[in-house]
Design a protein around this nucleic acid. Structure first.
Lengths: 134, 134
DNA sequence: TCTCAGCTTTACGTTAACGTAAACTTGTTT
DNA sequence: AAACAAGTTTACGTTAACGTAAAGCTGAGA
């Protein structure tokens, strides 16, 4: 038997509320088993939650994440058409991620130059008031 | 005199609605001049809009973007305290961006393996039905 | 037995980021 | 003059992603 998790274990591990986790289930991102009425999460559920949160950090909507999960599941038994659809979705995502990489690089450059500007301004202040606290 | 833009010029250039552009002004991200009651955007406004949209693509909220703009403006006439605040905000952002880079790399790897899996499934289909349309 | 922590469902509330519609002004073309 | 395009303000509507009660079940311990 592989490991299972309670809702609060996952909540504290990933620092989200139990409300969010249940909400993700409503949105068909997770399918925990039940013991009585209590939810039991498998390690597969755990992975799905991790992927969900990662997707969110990248600005994916829950609906988009769900779409990817479903496409992925259908891939196993996919028809040729399904597979080509999946491939096109994948390349859509890849393109979006590349754009994001570029965006990040640009913003990083801007932050770098902002930092330099700040440090220079600090130096100038220190020349005028050398006695100021560090 | 440097170049100016109408609201709809900017809207079509960046593929956003005029509604959004006016909304960004409400949120103090843009400060266009006026001729009569008509908004006139400078190239500085244009840059701000570009930065705003880039920030959005990275998942920044409009409030966060505004905060960065304001901190940046205050940097010019910043006190030592302001400058240190700015520096800490900058390093916050840098850390967040690095996390995002990691996330993107992970997702890219997952997409790669998904793509490979799809292509293999397609090959298997073609072995079974070599006569199927390409 | 009682209580208490941890889980559950149900359901209304909230915030961000706009969409959408109505009604108006202003400059330009027919 | 009339109509049109492009702009404006005002204001209510909408969606996503939860927050926040309220009220009830359930097994382990005092």
């Amino acid at each position: 038997m592989s490991k299972t998790y309670s809702i609060s274990e996952l909540a504290s591990e990933f620092d989200v509320t139990t409300r969010s986790i249940r909400f993700y289930e409503d949105q068909v991102l997770l399918h925990p088993a039940r013991r009585g009425q209590t939810r039991i999460y498998s390690s597969k559920d755990r992975v799905r939650l991790k992927l969900t949160l990662r997707g969110k950090r990248l600005g994916f909507s829950l609906a988009e994440i769900r779409e990817l999960f479903e496409l992925w599941d259908e891939t196993r038994s996919g028809s040729e058409k399904q597979l080509h659809l999946m491939l096109s979705k994948i390349s859509e995502r890849k393109a979006a991620l590349e754009q994001q990489m570029k965006d990040i690089t640009m913003v990083q450059l801007e932050l770098e130059s902002a930092e330099i500007r700040c440090r220079q301004a600090l130096e100038e202040l220190n020349e005028k008031h050398p006695a100021t606290a560090k």
